[in-house]
Each structure stands twice: as C-alpha cells, then as structure tokens.
Amino acid sequence: MSAVLPEQKLVRSLRIQARVIGALLMREIITRYGRHNIGFLWLFVEPMMFTLGVLALWTALGLHKVVLPIVAFTLSGYASVLLWRNTINRCGNAVEPNRALMHHRNVRIIDLYVSRIILEISGASISFLILSVVFMATGLVGMPDDLLKILIAWFLLAWFSLDMALIIGSLSVLSESVDRIWHVVSYLFLPLSGAFFMVDWLPTYAQELVLWIPTVNCTELLREGLFGNLVRAHYSVGYVVLVNMLLLLPGLLLVRYVGLHLEGE
C-alpha cells in the first residue's frame, strides 16, 4: 500500500471543502434572495435607492455644490457600510437554519460561515461595481482616480468583515444575546465607521482617535482612490493589515471551538 503524502491529502480535503462551500452557496442564494419578487436585484436596488434619496436630500438643501462629488461620496460610504454590515449580520444567524445539514460529515461549521461571507462580500462588491458603472455612465460619478487603491481598500474592508463575521458568528452560537447586542452595536458604530465623513473634516485630536477604527482607514483609502487629490486622506494600510491579522486568529479559534462545542451536543 502506498502511503498518501500529506500534501495530496490536503489537496483532496480542499477539493471536498470547495464542493461543500459551492453547494452551500447555491442554497444560500436561493434562501437569501428567493425566486419571488425581484429577488437578486434587491442587491442593487437597495443601495441605489439610498444613494438617490441622499442625493435628493442634498439637492433640496442646496448643499450639492460642496467640494466633493456628493453622489460618489454617498455611494462609496453606503457600499462600504453594506459590505461590513451585511457580512457580519448574516453570520450572526448562520448556524441555526442549517443545523440539519450538520449531519453530513463534510459540512463543517466553518463552511456555513465561509459560504455566507463569500456570498455577502461578492454581493456587496457586485452592487458597488454595477452602481458605479451606472452612475458613471449617467455622469453622476466621475472616473476614479486610482483603481488599485480602491481595490486594496475594498479588499482590506472585506478582510475586516470576514474577521468580524467569524467572531460575531461563533459568539452568537454560544450565546444568543451576542447577536442582539451586535445589532445595537452596529447601529452605534454606523456613524463612526467613516462612511459619512472624511477624517480631514474633524479637529486634530478627534482625527487621531478615529483613525484607530480600521473601517475609517479603509474608507479613507477608498476615497483617495476615487477622488485623488481632491481630498486629503488619512490612513495607514499597515495598521489595518495588522488589525485584520490579529482579529483573524480569535475568529478562527472561536469557529473551531464552536465546531467542537456543537459536535459535543
């Protein structure tokens, strides 16, 4: 009998996991968006309605002649909120509806999280992309200044969302109150997340404080990518990477712990 090399075993496991996640993804798409109503399209209609509403509000107040293009500003802010909020919220309740699937040996708890995270991240990304293209085509949004910066910012924000989703998701399995508390916290966190302000608008002492928040750094970078020299962005990519790295560890540990905990039941 030829010994199976550990690498081959790992690749085999990876292939199985990919198939599991793929299957879960299809299931999630159908349960998330359904086949009735406009279904999948809500992904774009929701942020579009919000952006248009804000645009109308600003125009009515006569504030649309500010330095920044307000449509692009609102769109980028809402899109980034959508990214972290949906990703984290959806993982708060990932296990319970899929409990029955856990009887399959190869459906692990991390697969449930990963499939939801992938779905939410790609949903938010596609929505941001398509809305940007639509607004660009209608001239409401100018061409971005630096595409690479936008991509990096988006990636870092998605990474942060993944970390938080793993942490909040597994904690809410352990205690239901975590999910409820998180909803409150996420509303409180909304104005602090950097989606609706630029750091440069704040007084100096507040700038230093607010830059401790990883999402603020991401939105700053995102806006520098969008507007270039129109804005004076404050951010540190290194800091965000560090925080993301440090948060990933407890996230994975918690997921592992929850997996053992559920199996023990």
Binding site: R105, M245, L253
Partner: peptide, 22 residues
C-alpha cells in the same frame, strides 16, 4: 509575535480544511 499569529492563522486554516475527508 507576528510570526506566531501568522502560524496560528495558517495552522487553524489547514486544520479546518483537513476536517473534510472522504
């Protein structure tokens, strides 16, 4: 310390993948 964190993340990821077997 960063290496330790990295190692933790990587080994946990590998362990999670390895849980899937035929």
């Amino acid at each position: 310390l960063m290496g330790l964190v990295m190692w933790g993340v990587l080994s946990l990821t590998v362990a999670a993948v390895k849980e899937h077997v035929d």
